[in-house]
Nucleic acid binder design. Structure first.
Lengths: 178, 178
DNA sequence: TATTATTTTCAGTAAGGACTGAAATAAACG
DNA sequence: CGTTTATTTCAGTCCTTACTGAAAATAATA
């Protein structure tokens, strides 16, 4: 698969962005490549296009499948596995957000709850002023994370159409809320 | 500054989370430490508490100041610089989001616009079917990023109170939109 | 079942980023 | 000013993660 200057620019940038958000550069590049590819492609082709080892591609594809944004797409008369990603960007975004919520937000929620609960228990016995302060901070942070999580759940349950309309509604948002 | 088991757990977790989102572990730990500290603290104390080199703390604090979530707080009768972070978690979140938007979303927006523009130009001359496909994908992605950016701008301009109310409004959201 | 094609695993290596300690710089004090 | 205190810079080192290539495992074919 040959990259035009435009697509190459995109693939490189996507890799760069990925790495800024804790996603391996190659993984992100592969994702970009699949996204702009008009048909499913196989691992060898990816390896060649991006100049990385075949084994690296294998691992990265597994990772992307784990995220739920890449899947195997059988191609008629081909033995090799071919891969695609969903073309609907909104769907893609939601899948990624779901996964990050599960992997990162939820564990943080759990941890903060533990911290705040233990802090509550200690309050029964005497505690230093500084500890009380820290505990208050933790409780506030917990509230924020819970609120965000709950809000996302709401948004997530909207029908796709409504969701996109909501995001696109521009200055009407503030009117709506007042 | 001595950490209780609770606060220590929090600081470590925060560092861990940071590194998953592309933020240096130590930087995130320092931030956590400042967040739960009832009073401004100086670099030496941070270094000691977290067992890292003084110079490392210096760099990390600069980084945090660059993000706008840590500032120098002069303490009466002290020569050393002392540091704090805002106690309002919502404020903190918004500051970070602003900064990430500026650093990562906006450049992506610029790049995608360039790509899509160049693609438009090519359409004038003849172009292969596959290129046309890729360009369509890029245009869709651009639309998503633009929409997200615009929406964030809206949300960002809400008064703090309204914003928090909005995020906390639970199941009323879907009712509001229908 | 043997042969060939394809994918995965994994030990070793490379690359990138984080961290340290020492030296340089800057700021405060007397 | 000279001295002391505090902060920053930076070259070298360490550590983590990414990546490779070869070998093992799996799957398809005949």
């Amino acid at each position: 698969m040959k990259l035009t200057p435009i697509t190459q620019k995109f693939v490189l940038h996507w890799g760069e962005m990925g790495s800024r958000w804790g996603i391996n550069r190659t993984v992100a590049q592969i994702h970009a490549l699949l996204y702009i590819s008009p048909r499913p492609i196989h691992a060898d082709e990816i390896a060649e296009t991006l100049s990385v080892a075949r084994s690296n591609v294998s691992t990265s594809l597994k990772e992307l499948q784990g995220w739920g944004i890449v899947q195997v797409a059988p191609v008629l008369g081909e033995r090799k596995d071919h891969f695609t990603t969903q073309t609907d960007v909104w769907e893609m975004l939601l899948v990624v957000l779901d996964e990050r919520k599960k992997r990162e937000l939820d564990p943080t929620l759990t941890l903060l709850r533990e911290c705040v609960m233990q802090a509550e228990e200690q309050k029964a016995g005497g505690q230093v002023e500084d500890e009380a302060y820290a505990h208050k901070r933790l409780a506030e942070l917990l509230d924020l994370v819970e609120t965000m999580g709950g809000w996302y759940g709401q948004v997530r349950s909207l029908p796709r159409k409504t969701l996109v309309k909501f995001l696109k509604m521009g200055s009407k948002l503030s009117k709506l809320l007042s």
